[in-house]
């Protein structure tokens, strides 16, 4: 099983946003789109969202909960939480280094 997101191609950025959104708790598709819009300012479209969800589900990083009135919530699996932590720490390191370098110039 791959541990990174780079092999997800154009779905790697949406995937990290989804993982970050689900870190708070289970959400269905529309709630994820609103949450991502709120914390990242990114408007995910439905086709991209479900392309990424299917990939993350296939990897076992997220799991679906029983549907509530057609809307199916998703949550992070244990492996997904570890992967999310790893990816977010990587982004944090990049941000820290980048901002540090900007301060010195």
């Amino acid at each position: 099983m791959s541990s990174g997101l780079s092999d997800l191609g154009r779905f790697s950025d949406p995937s990290i946003l989804i993982l970050a959104s689900l870190s708070e708790g289970p959400k269905h598709g529309y709630a994820m789109m609103q949450d991502i819009q709120a914390f990242a300012g990114v408007s995910l479209e439905p086709g991209t969202l479900y392309g990424a969800l299917a990939r993350l589900e296939r990897r076992g990083w997220i799991k679906s909960e029983p549907a509530e009135d057609r809307r199916r919530p998703y949550s992070l699996s244990g492996e997904g939480a570890a992967a999310a932590r790893e990816q977010l720490l990587r982004l944090e390191r990049i941000a820290t280094v980048g901002l540090g370098r900007l301060r010195t110039t």
Binding site: P46, G47, T48, R71
Partner: peptide
Amino acid sequence: RYEDEFRALLEQHHVTVVTFLDVLLGALDA
């Protein structure tokens, strides 16, 4: 696997030309 929840999402989502293209690309990707 996904049609019901996808439809439910579309009912709430503000659909634009970008949505149209995105859903079309999603079908190709699938």
